[in-house]
Amino acid sequence: MDTDLVARAQRGDKDAFAVLAAERADRYLAASHRILRDLSLAEDATQQALLSIWRDLPQLRDPARFDAWSYRLLVRACYAEARRNRRWTPNLTLLPVDEPVEDDGTRSVIDRDQLHRAFGRLPMDQRTVVVLRHYLDLPFEGIAEVLGIPAGTVASRLHYAMRGLRSALDADARPTVREVGP
């Protein structure tokens, strides 16, 4: 990372900030799109995050920590955007299913739509951890720094997220159970 560029942007150099923003905007938008599951909300969150980054940049003490710090502002903007638009939140909690599903040989080919649905059903804090870990490739300590929570909490949140995904995928793979009336 170009810490000189960050330092210049901290001193109010708009060109330097424009370069920083241009280099990262696509990644930020992609990450927030995956967290929020809505492109228009993600665009708003990304723009707000980048503007916050510009405004608060002089307060960043160590330019080398720019990426972790900026991800924190991005996640914060995603949460703020989500609060403003509650229509997207299904807020369902899935009960994990412990018994394994029989592998009929097609398990490795999981339909994208299934995954899309299952991911959308996860609570937002779990989706965020999955995106930070498996899309942005941040280590547990990095995620902990971004979210301001202990690394152990990150690990457990990720565990429950992946468990929830597995359960949802397995549930989707099962034949529909017909409701039985009284």
Partner: peptide, 20 residues
């Protein structure tokens, strides 16, 4: 995802947003 248009709006905002 294409952030180009978003950047256009952002940099106009930056012009009018002072840093803290």
């Amino acid at each position: 995802e294409d952030a180009e248009r978003l950047l256009f709006a952002l940099l106009a905002d930056v012009d009018t947003t002072p840093q803290r």
